[in-house]
């Protein structure tokens, strides 16, 4: 498993602070070490050659390309992106974000992204998330997916909902329970 930090949209949420922790779990993490950077946020977010060639690696590769239209265009930078048959582009939707808060907004957002293969419902309000909110997100994402003629790949929810949240809550979508590392990954 290789994780690649290609997020040049929001460089403040980054794999840098947990790079070593994830590597200790056996993952390959392609990201800067903070001490190797210079002028963070003043000199732009820099990309390295190994990031651009990452699709040529063996095994599963997960790319964080940042959010929105600018994020999706980041894929253009990758060598061999056009020839990759196994590449799957999932748009992760949080219906608690103002720009994807309604079915119409989600449709407009996803259409602006270019190629998208599936949607993932990741509706949450951090620690305030409850099942009703996840359920409502599943409904909105599912309705948008129908109009967009895309499958909903899954609903993502915090590990703490295991046992209480079922597939019946989210219109039969598979549920991916998540352990959250990102709250510790600021700058």
């Amino acid at each position: 498993m290789t994780l690649v930090d290609l997020d040049v949209v929001e460089p403040f949420y980054t794999l840098r602070p947990i790079k070593r922790e994830l590597e200790a779990k056996g993952m390959t993490v392609i990201a800067w070490e903070t001490r190797d950077t210079m002028g963070l946020g003043e000199a732009g977010t820099l990309i390295r050659g190994d990031m651009l060639w990452s699709l040529h690696r063996e095994g599963d590769i997960v790319l964080d390309i940042g959010y929105g239209v600018e994020g999706s265009k980041t894929l253009n930078l990758l060598h061999g992106v056009g020839e990759q048959k196994d590449l799957r582009i999932n748009a992760v939707i949080n219906a608690s974000r103002p720009m994807t808060a309604s079915v119409d907004d989600i449709i407009e957002h996803v259409r602006a992204l270019g190629r998208v293969d599936a949607l993932i419902n990741n509706t949450h309000l951090a620690d305030e998330t409850d099942i009703a909110l996840i359920r409502e997100g599943a409904r909105l994402v599912s309705e948008a997916a129908q109009v967009l003629n895309l499958p909903v790949e899954a609903t993502a929810a915090d590990e703490k909902f295991r046992g209480s949240l079922t597939e019946d809550d989210v219109l039969g979508q598979p549920i991916r329970f998540l352990t959250r590392y990102m709250p510790r990954t600021f700058w």
Binding site: L46, N76, H79
Partner: peptide
């Protein structure tokens, strides 16, 4: 600036 233009080498 290929990074912010989001362009491959040819583009």
């Amino acid at each position: 600036c290929p990074t912010n233009w989001r362009t491959n080498a040819a583009k």
